[in-house]
Measured scan of single mutants.
Amino acid sequence: MSIQHFRVALIPFFAAFCLPVFAHPETLVKVKDAEDQLGARVGYIELDLNSGKILESFRPEERFPMMSTFKVLLCGAVLSRVDAGQEQLGRRIHYSQNDLVEYSPVTEKHLTDGMTVRELCSAAITMSDNTAANLLLTTIGGPKELTAFLHNMGDHVTRLDRWEPELNEAIPNDERDTTMPAAMATTLRKLLTGELLTLASRQQLIDWMEADKVAGPLLRSALPAGWFIADKSGAGERGSRGIIAALGPDGKPSRIVVIYTTGSQATMDERNRQIAEIGASLIKHW
C-alpha cells in the first residue's frame, strides 16, 4: 500500500482519535458579512469528516447552483462504474471539434489522439474542462443518470439537468442544476469515506481534487503551510461562485467545507476574496 493510499485508508482512524471539535460562531459572522459585502445569498456548511456531524452552517438547506462543483460527483459516478466493471479508466475516447464547448483548455489539445477516461476526469476536476465533463456525462448516460446515481446514494436534493455550459445559467428560483450545502457536503463525505467506492477509487477521487489547479484564489489562499486540501470550485452566471473541499491540518483532511453564493453584482475577484476570507476565519478558529 502506498503512503497516499495509507493516508486515505486511515482518515477515519486518525479522526477518531482527534480531540473533540467545537464550532466557532466567528466564522458564521464572516459568512454573514460576506453576504453584506456581496449583496447576495451565501450558503455555508462545515462537517466533521469522521462523524458527519454538522459543526457550523448557514442557509444549509437553500438551493444554490452547483456550477462546476458537480464534476466531482460526476467522476465519482464514473469511478463507481469502474468498480462495477462497467468502465475502464484506460479506455480512450475520441471526439471532434464539434464536441468542444466553451472553456476546454485540455480537451482542445487532444482532438487528434483523444483522451482516456482517467485523463478526462483529471481534466474535468483539476482544470474544470467543460468538454471533458460533457464527454464523461455521455459515458454514464447524461445528466439524468448522474441525478439517479445521487438518488441511489441517498441524495434526493442534488440534481443535474443540463450539460456544460448551460448548467451554469443560475436563474433565480430555478431548481435545475442545483444542490443544497448540506446535501453536497453529505454526498461528498460519502464519496470520500464511505463504502460506495473502493479504496482505490476513493484515493483516485481525492487525488484529482488535491491536484486542483484553478481554485488557488479561494480556500487555498488562506491555508497555512502543512495543511491538506482537496477541492473543486465552480463559477456561473449572475454572480455565482462555489467551492467544495476536504481539508485539515497535519497533512490530512478532517472536515468537509461547502460554500456557495449566487445573485451578486460583485466582480469575480471580490467573490473570490470573500470566500478566501471565510476560509481564513475557519482556519483561525479551527
Results as ranks from 00 to 15, higher is better:
P25L: 11
E26D: 11
T27N: 04
K30A: 15
K32S: 10
K32Y: 09
D33P: 03
D33G: 10
A34M: 15
E35S: 04
E35D: 04
Q37D: 12
Q37T: 14
G39Q: 14
G39H: 14
G39C: 08
G39D: 14
G39Y: 08
V42F: 11
Y44A: 02
E46Q: 13
G52I: 02
I54G: 04
L55D: 04
L55K: 08
E56Y: 05
E56I: 05
E56Q: 10
E56L: 07
E56A: 10
S57H: 10
F58P: 00
R59P: 03
E62P: 01
E62N: 07
R63A: 07
F64I: 01
M67D: 05
K71N: 00
K71Y: 01
L73H: 06
C75R: 00
G76E: 00
A77L: 11
L79F: 05
L79D: 02
L79V: 06
S80K: 14
S80V: 13
R81K: 12
R81N: 09
A84V: 12
A84P: 04
G85W: 06
Q86D: 15
Q88P: 05
Q88T: 14
R91E: 06
H94N: 10
H94V: 11
Y95C: 02
Q97M: 12
Q97K: 15
D99T: 09
V101R: 08
V101H: 07
Y103F: 09
T107G: 04
K109T: 13
M115P: 02
E119T: 05
E119G: 10
L120F: 04
L120V: 05
L120Q: 01
C121E: 00
C121F: 00
C121R: 00
A123E: 02
A123P: 00
I125H: 04
T126Q: 09
S128L: 00
D129N: 00
D129C: 03
A132D: 02
L135C: 05
L137I: 10
T138C: 10
E145G: 13
T147A: 07
T147C: 09
T147S: 11
L150Y: 08
L150K: 02
N152M: 15
D155E: 06
D155Y: 02
H156D: 13
T158S: 12
R162K: 06
R162H: 09
W163H: 09
W163I: 10
E164Y: 03
P165Y: 05
I171F: 15
P172H: 10
N173C: 12
N173M: 12
N173P: 06
D174C: 06
E175A: 12
R176Q: 10
R176M: 09
D177N: 01
T179Q: 02
M180P: 04
T187M: 08
L188T: 09
L192H: 05
T193M: 15
G194Q: 12
E195H: 15
L197G: 05
L199T: 14
S201F: 05
Q204T: 11
L205K: 02
I206C: 10
D207N: 14
D207R: 14
W208A: 04
W208P: 00
V214D: 02
V214M: 09
A215Y: 03
P217M: 13
P217H: 10
L219F: 09
S221I: 11
A222M: 11
P224Q: 07
P224M: 05
A225R: 12
A225N: 14
A225P: 13
W227K: 00
F228A: 08
F228I: 08
F228S: 07
D231S: 05
K232Q: 00
K232C: 01
K232N: 02
G234K: 00
G236L: 03
I244Y: 00
I244D: 04
P249I: 06
G251A: 12
K252V: 12
P253E: 08
R255M: 06
I256P: 00
V257P: 01
V257S: 04
V257F: 05
V258G: 07
Y260E: 00
G263S: 08
S264W: 05
S264I: 05
Q265N: 14
T267V: 11
T267K: 12
M268I: 12
M268T: 09
D269F: 11
Q274M: 13
A276D: 05
A276W: 08
E277Y: 08
G279A: 10
G279Q: 02
G279T: 06
A280N: 15
A280M: 15
S281I: 15
K284T: 11
H285N: 15
H285R: 11
